[in-house]
Design a protein around this nucleic acid. Structure first.
Lengths: 138, 138
DNA sequence: CTTGACACCGTGCATATACACGTTATCTAG
DNA sequence: CTAGATAACGTGTATATGCACGGTGTCAAG
């Protein structure tokens, strides 16, 4: 049998995602949102006017996952959604409260990014982003 | 504000994990287990005699996540657990059915690995594993 | 023997993720 | 106008994940 599951790409991508998420979550603990949520808020900010489907495509989410993640942010009054001019499009955007919170938490996010970068060998942070984006694109 | 969340390591690791998991899940669809489960079964096979805590440490899981993932595999009769000689240790191992299924699905896993490797530039598969392991270790 | 430290463990709760399926709005061919 | 195609959507169900909390077994100090 002798197959080496330590080379399994599923194991390894998920393990990295768990480790990084836990790490960033620790920086944000007690601040009202977790790492996944703030990164979603950042994505909404960066792709204004996008529908849920467009956001999902851009961030590699299943559309229905995004629906529910947005529902939670709406319940917290951090996001609300408008309707597209035509069709059923749901267009999420940050509320004032959401923008305020995002700005308030940005220093923590920057700190998390900076300290991760500092713990990696020189250039490894950028290499990691490149590798991850390539994996997400296949 | 001008922060670039496209460089967010949380977003990028999770996006890669989602993409890879979806891909491997597609190879396994209808076979009774998903990609996460078969990779866990592989980990059990490779670390025989380990307790849940040791497995969790080795694979970067929270211990309680592993508890429930194992419960599901036990409910499917693919895994069962023995008791450590001392203390409360839970020691999972594949059942006969679990081993049979793992062997049966190995060709699909190998195919998934091989086709992913083929779609990446030369050397990128190995580079990816190295980068992911480094991220999981920080 | 009891008490406390320690190392395991599981459960309650919440969020994240995705597939299958059905719904709604718009447009176009007939 | 109607029927079908198309593009968006949400919900039901299931798995995955982790933190907070509490339980259980072992051992050493008193």
């Amino acid at each position: 049998m002798a197959d080496d599951f330590s080379l399994c790409m599923v194991s390894n991508t998920r393990m990295a995602a768990r480790a990084i998420t836990r790490r960033y979550d620790a920086y944000l603990r007690g601040r009202g949102v977790n790492a996944t949520q703030i990164s979603l808020m950042g994505a909404i900010q960066m792709l204004p006017g996008s529908t849920v489907s467009e956001l999902a495509e851009a961030r590699g989410f299943d559309r229905t996952t995004l629906t529910r993640n947005l529902d939670r942010l709406e319940a917290m009054d951090l996001v609300d959604s408008g309707h597209a001019a035509h069709g059923n499009g749901r267009i999420p955007r940050l509320t004032g409260k959401g923008e305020t919170l995002l700005v308030e938490l940005l220093p923590l996010w920057r700190k998390a990014q900076a300290e991760l970068r500092a713990e990696l060998p020189r250039g490894a942070f950028e290499e990691s982003l490149r590798v991850l984006q390539r994996l997400a694109a296949v």
